[in-house]
Design a protein around this nucleic acid. Structure first.
Lengths: 125, 125, 125, 125
DNA sequence: GTGGTCTAGACCACT
DNA sequence: GTGGTCTAGACCACG
């Protein structure tokens, strides 16, 4: 678990998004206990309140839940996670097409660009 | 020319990005005169100061230049536009791969998702 | 006897309120012996200390009393129970009127809403 | 606009609920500008951050929205307000029946209690 | 002057 | 030791 922040977005949003990714990608498993607020604050070198705010919003999304005095946990609702994950992927794809469209590249070419770029990277790696 | 804003980013940045897109996509042509600040302010229903700030930053990027008393124009430097455009496209592609990677989807699958989604949309249209 | 808890209130308060309801509603009868602390702890899957705290507060209200070495019992003071019960009901009614008033619904309409809702539910059942 | 707090619930929740009532009951009108965060903090004698938290949650419910640098406003979505209002009323009614049921009073009697209590109050007023 | 963010630090309830 | 709440105060971007 690792946290680096840029100055473009509020830190609490970056924390929220990072943890959401950890959950959606399965790096944090269903039902798993999260590090304590204070621990996350130490790891990420921000104020505990900032962490609290991020976690609070994740809880509103139902991706995590709180057991009083016990800690915070990833939801056990696999379906919820899967739905959000699919929504997330769908957005990435749609955003890609939209961005390309805005700069004047149609779908067919958008896919071609992607394949070419992928090949170039393959050479490097 | 059309402007819709959300409240997540400063408006002047949204104006700047929109105009940059208009230039990179060719909607605003090389050397073309931009609408006046006042006019842009009316079109986008935004304070003229905000437009000024956006144009100022575009000018720093050399994408537009000012002729005193005459107005502001899209740069005539096609190469500059093309370079920025390619950089822009490259970023979109790389961001796509990165976003997918973060959620645990590899390049091969990333391309497949894109093709599937493209097909689905074709059916609709 | 059944216990489900939410995380919004302290558990010991929820236990206390639940048991009070059992007494006021007659589900636990006058003079009846309560299950032992240990047993209540098992039933409700809660730490025995938490049960103790709840019972302690009920004892302060005189709704239960302790016979040393013998167990805890519902009070035999029927009048006390009846008084608390009536107070309780009065509160429910007043709270209903107040809640409706706060959202701008007068007494007459409040009663009408109730009757309509009751009819709807009758259809279902 | 008036704020009195008890110690049973967090202040930010009480602020949130009060404002929600003001909106649902129409005391704060559709599209109306709210007092500034700082002003609300003065009126209610709590820290601006506490107000901010309350308003933040109302915004997540879409009952209010923010215009950057301009202030916060009641949503203009009348349908949303009406839906939430009806949900709210429905909950009050259901809670009434449930509370009465828990203490052992059936629906028919629940309605009778209400009518009697209402008559008593009429005498007073 | 508007909202937004963040920090530091304190105190509380619960188990 | 866990999360939750609140304050005081500072600083920032925006228009």
């Amino acid at each position: 678990m690792e946290f680096k922040f840029d100055n473009e977005k509020p830190i609490f949003i970056q924390v929220k998004e990072k943890l959401r990714l950890y959950i959606l990608s399965g790096y944090l498993k269903v039902g798993e206990k999260l590090p304590s607020v204070r621990e996350l604050a130490l790891i990420s070198k921000v104020n505990p309140n900032t962490i609290q705010k991020a976690l609070g919003e994740l809880e509103l999304e139902k991706l995590i839940y709180t057991e009083r005095t016990n800690g915070k946990f990833v939801t056990t609702n696999k379906i919820l996670i899967e739905n959000i994950r699919q929504e997330f992927v769908k957005n990435i794809v749609d955003n890609y097409f939209n961005s390309m469209k805005e700069i004047g590249i149609d779908k067919k070419s958008s896919i071609k660009y992607l394949q070419e770029r992928s090949n170039k990277n393959d050479i490097r790696s």
